[in-house]
């Protein structure tokens, strides 16, 4: 464990908590893409199947369980409990456009051709693009609530911090996994436009509103 990975994990955890609290406190999931949340749930379930096969540490197990359970809870809040507030008219990105290419890519580019390894690789590829329905929804409505902006910032920072973690691990542990690195890089790049708006607007006390 190094400082980048720990802060990355904490940013990830913070993002999830911000989102759950926002929905719970405001009793509304408006401005949140249910599709991105479904995709993240698929990501965690397919990646953390190793919870059943090998034990790494209490930290690792606890975080994996938190991610799976909290993403299921978020999906439940959006599609069941606060269904009436869900922006379904704006959440129109097609999930299959992300899921199918991720499956094909995972079958082609992976380390080993085993069920667990292909599913792990699929989860890495899908995670890289899972935020697209959410970014699409924000661009369609032209704005995001400030709390939603904080959520996106925390979630985007997490993989960026993991990139620093991989540089660290390459130098100090001789650890290198191109699949994670390239997907993590793509994932972080997708947030760049948002990061720019977040720093120039939200941090200056204004609402995130897209330029016309």
């Amino acid at each position: 464990m190094n400082i980048f990975r720990l802060t990355g994990d904490l940013a990830h955890l913070t993002a999830i908590i911000i989102l759950l609290l926002k929905i719970w406190k405001t009793r509304s999931c408006s401005g949140i893409s249910g599709k991105s949340q479904i995709l993240f749930t698929v990501v965690y379930i397919t990646r953390y199947l190793d919870l059943f096969t090998n034990y790494i540490s209490a930290y690792n197990t606890l975080m994996k369980i938190i991610f799976v359970v909290s993403s299921l809870a978020t999906v439940f809040l959006i599609y069941f409990k606060f269904k009436a507030t869900y922006d379904r008219n704006h959440d129109t990105f097609r999930m299959e456009f992300l899921i199918i290419p991720s499956i094909i890519l995972a079958l082609l580019i992976r380390h080993e051709f085993t069920v667990m390894e292909v599913l792990w690789t699929f989860s890495i590829y899908l995670e890289a693009v899972a935020i697209l329905p959410q970014l699409f929804l924000v661009s369609k409505t032209g704005e995001a609530e400030t709390i939603t902006s904080h959520y996106l910032f925390a979630l985007g920072s997490y993989r960026g911090l993991y990139l620093l973690n991989w540089i660290w691990r390459y130098y100090f542990e001789n650890f290198l996994d191109w699949i994670s690195i390239v997907a993590g890089f793509v994932q972080t790049v997708l947030y760049c436009d948002f990061f720019y708006l977040y720093v120039t607007r939200v941090l200056h006390g204004r609402k995130l509103r897209l330029p016309a």
Binding site: R5, N54, M63, F67, H111, E112, Y162, D177
Partner: peptide
């Protein structure tokens, strides 16, 4: 070896 070690990440 490398594949095993990345499994400690989330």
């Amino acid at each position: 070896k490398l594949i095993k070690r990345r499994k400690d990440e989330l």
